[in-house]
């Protein structure tokens, strides 16, 4: 066991972890932040996407020990300070960007990373950026629409609701 310390959603946290403890296990099981989901556990589905020092990463493919000293943001850290939904989260609700919701935490984190890099992405850029996030319900149309809407663009011409 070794001690790790990091900042998660603005709060300093620490814990004792084994070498093979994945970051997602530390977040979910030690910190009880279960918003970050484990879908495939093989770094393909993206349900566990979080931000490490402001960059998206798959928390199932990183050890907790590698995050020592890092600044981590999970979906629990995405809402506004008053508890209301962030622009991206609200857009997912408004445009039905989820059905079962399992992939949604990862989708929201990836969307936030995209809009930080590219505030006004095209539809093609959104789809390309979502390559590492799999959704088996929606067919992606409304996810793309939600992200476009969150970027402040007119989405009336994109796909059907």
């Amino acid at each position: 066991m070794s001690k790790v310390s990091m900042t998660v959603n603005g709060k300093a946290v620490s814990g004792d972890v084994k070498g093979n403890t994945l970051l997602v296990e530390f977040l979910r099981e030690d910190l009880r932040l279960t918003g970050t989901h484990v879908g495939c556990d093989t770094s393909q589905c993206g349900a566990c996407t979080i931000h490490v020092n402001g960059k998206s990463a798959k928390a199932c493919t990183m050890f907790a020990a590698e995050a020592d000293g890092a600044d981590i943001t999970t979906v629990e850290g995405m809402a506004n300070a008053d508890g209301s939904l962030s622009v991206i989260q609200q857009a997912f609700q408004d445009h039905h960007g989820l059905q079962c919701g399992f992939c949604t935490p990862g989708m929201v984190m990836t969307a936030a990373a995209l809009l930080k890099e590219n505030p006004k992405p095209t539809e093609a850029e959104v789809r390309h950026y979502l390559e590492g996030n799999i959704c088996r319900c929606t067919g992606y149309h409304n996810i793309v629409k939600a992200i476009m809407a969150a970027s402040g663009q007119d989405v009336s011409a994109i796909a059907a609701e």
Binding site: S43, G46, T49, V52, K55, S56, A57, K58, T61, M62, T110, A113, L114, Y129, E131, G132, N133
Partner: peptide, 9 residues
Amino acid sequence: IGDPAVRNR
């Protein structure tokens, strides 16, 4: 390479 999250690691 891979996807955005993979490229960050």
